[in-house]
Amino acid sequence: MKRYIINRLLLLIPTILGVTFIIFTIMSLTPGDPGRIILGQGAEQADVDQFNRDLGLDRPFLVRYVTYVANAVRGDFGLSYRTGRPVYESIRNRFPFTVTLAFLGVLGSMIIGIPLGILSAVKQYSFWDILGSVSAMFLAAVPGFWLGLMLILFFSLRLGWLPSSGVGTYQHYIMPAITLAIPGAARILRLTRTTMLETIRTDYVRTARAKGAKERTVVWKHALRNALLPIVTSIGVSFAAALGGTVITEAVFALPGLGTLVITSIRMKDTPQVMAAVLLLSFLFMIIILLIDLTYGFIDPRIKSMYR
């Protein structure tokens, strides 16, 4: 188990290197240069060239890449082209919002999706099942920004219960978290229903019934734990995706999160800022995937025995 974790962590190094290379290449190959974008269309060409030279952009691609990696290894991720401040500053400011939001969103979708999914499966074809499936289908189809806007319209403008934008209190997180949670809940509900329907029909569940176990024991002790693997994967991936992909929610609720930072920085060709943010996100992504795999081991002894 320990060796497995160490191996997986070592694997992070080449993966992260690969990510840096790809992002760096894309940022270099796309048209436009930072000097022109930051100084504006009215600036003199000589000033723009000087600006770019100061950033070291006149050097060949490979030299720039190797310099970047060498500095990054020493913990120096550079200065933002746009602000001239170290890139980690804006990341440090924004990261907590994004993590909190992603966490609340995923937690919400679990709390709604898993119990309803189980209920739908156990009472297949009943009123509850049909209601659950239909609303899941509906909610999965609702675009996040629309849902966010509707929530603002109702709870902020009409009722005045919740703040519509910005950060500061826990109330600011309620509507963004719901906006993120609802589509996720619909997905988890349907996944839970499908996998539970499958496990409920397995032979070992029949064995449990043949022992005289109560239906509740059969569902929670015998079926759910076996149905959990795909659900855990889906939750982990949702969380990882929410970390990098809450741009729309952030935009609707004017939250200063990482997603917005990445989008703005890409537009500004602010390579160091983009690199730092993407590196952090991909690092987190891989840690989450590792955690999912380790959770598998706790759920399923067959998988645990392979982690050597």
């Binding site: 032979d203 029949r206 449990a208 043949a210 022992k211 005289g212 002894p301």
Partner: peptide, 20 residues
């Protein structure tokens, strides 16, 4: 069930719960 009448099933591979 399991007390007065119990049953042995056809396929032992799938009849035991893999996580217990």
């Amino acid at each position: 069930r399991g007390n007065n009448i119990s049953m042995i099933f056809q396929d032992p591979m799938s009849s035991l719960n893999p996580v217990l």
